[in-house]
Write a protein that binds this DNA or RNA. Structure first.
Lengths: 215, 215
DNA sequence: GTACTTTTCAAACATGTGTTTGAAATTGTG
DNA sequence: CACAATTTCAAACACATGTTTGAAAAGTAC
């Protein structure tokens, strides 16, 4: 039962390298040899510690998933303590602050997890099908409920749509997926600076949330 | 120089199958054998007609890129004929109508191209680095300019940000990237119906565009 | 019908993939 | 120290990958 410091360090190094490479190139385009080489460990170490490449991906995800969900909840609860019925702006702030804090604290893996989430939206991985809703189901419901109190003119269904658009916008923005870079040779927006993204995005999504019903 | 009907049919079948599979599984997770099997052609046919897998991807993209950019331009120009200074709503309508029309006309490949675009935002392919800005640079500038006339209170930089958020939201929405499906077991939003998506999305993005400056 | 080009095809190519093996090295324990 | 469990490692495994080959088939032109 000896979990030596060295062993912990090895699996952590693998997780760090894999996280970075999965974000950069995606799951399929990242080979085991690339990961283990970047981590400076033997190629067999991944299977030794995580069973398989799929197991590694799941482990990479789960290391950040719980802290981030707790961060999201904590910021929402803080907003609700300050104001029993927080405004759309305050709710979005809770969301973005969670993402920004995740990016700032090195222990949470920088911006990487948010980027990984954004990637996973368009490239879902079977290994997450079960664990993610279990972790984020309640968080999502809490945010949607808060949005419902802030915008009572919207139906339950439309609230879900708004939350859908909100998350999509936030994660894509923070992930730095620069749509314009595909469309224009030299886009003048700098989608890499999270603080700037948050400042630019805020008025957009808050106004979107407060918009009248589609009817 | 004989371009027989059979040859045209073969390359078209490859393009159709590849387009569908690239959208479904992404570039790296789609093998040549899967493509050629789905198209009912020999595996060597891809290299014969398109040189390589990368060449095929580029060809898949370029078949739809020009029609879609022309559709986007045509709808914007139509809006500007009806009203010299179209509102944000009318500009977004031009955008969404182009996407919807692309989805409805079978000759344009259904919704597939929009989905492919959305995928390519997070998983850029080197083969498109040059051709896309050449095709969509002017279209983007025209839309941004139109947005600038509709919202004169925004700076050039902030206009680019708004257009960035707008395109991101539109493409992700139409691509059916269901963020909520990763977060909740049974999301009640149906992100697969383009008409419904457009109706739900419209008030959100229009209000977002019209929002006051971030200052 | 013959000569030529274009297209198809099965087979093989070299290389990359995730994974397993079994022994060596290291670490923890009595 | 000696014994056992844990961790590392080079090598090999079986298989999948994109690509190429060279001959057979189909099509075109005179």
């Amino acid at each position: 039962m000896a979990e030596s410091a060295k062993a912990l360090e090895t699996s952590a190094r693998i997780l760090d390298a894999a996280e970075k490479l999965f974000v950069e190139h995606g799951f399929h385009a990242t080979s085991m040899r690339l990961i283990t080489q970047a981590a400076g460990v033997n190629i067999a170490a991944v299977n030794y510690y995580f069973g398989s490449k799929d197991g590694l991906f799941k482990a990479v995800f789960e290391r950040r998933a719980e802290p981030f969900s707790q961060l999201m909840l904590a910021h929402l609860e803080e907003a609700e303590r300050a104001n029993p019925v927080p405004s759309a702006l305050q709710i979005v702030h809770a969301f973005t602050n969670a993402a920004l804090q995740m990016g700032n604290e090195p222990d949470y893996g920088g911006q990487l997890f948010v980027k990984l989430l954004a990637r996973t939206f368009v490239e879902p991985h079977p290994a997450l099908k079960e664990s993610m809703p279990r972790r984020y189901g309640e968080v999502s419901r809490r945010y949607i409920a808060a949005l419902g109190r802030a915008m009572p003119h919207l139906s339950e269904l439309e609230l879900h749509w708004r939350f859908h658009f909100l998350s999509s916008a936030l994660f894509n923005a923070f992930a730095g997926n620069n749509v314009l870079r595909l469309f224009m040779a030299q886009p003048i927006v700098n989608a890499r600076d999270p603080e700037l993204v948050a400042r630019m995005l805020l008025p957009f999504v808050v106004a979107g949330l407060n918009a009248p019903s589609a009817g």
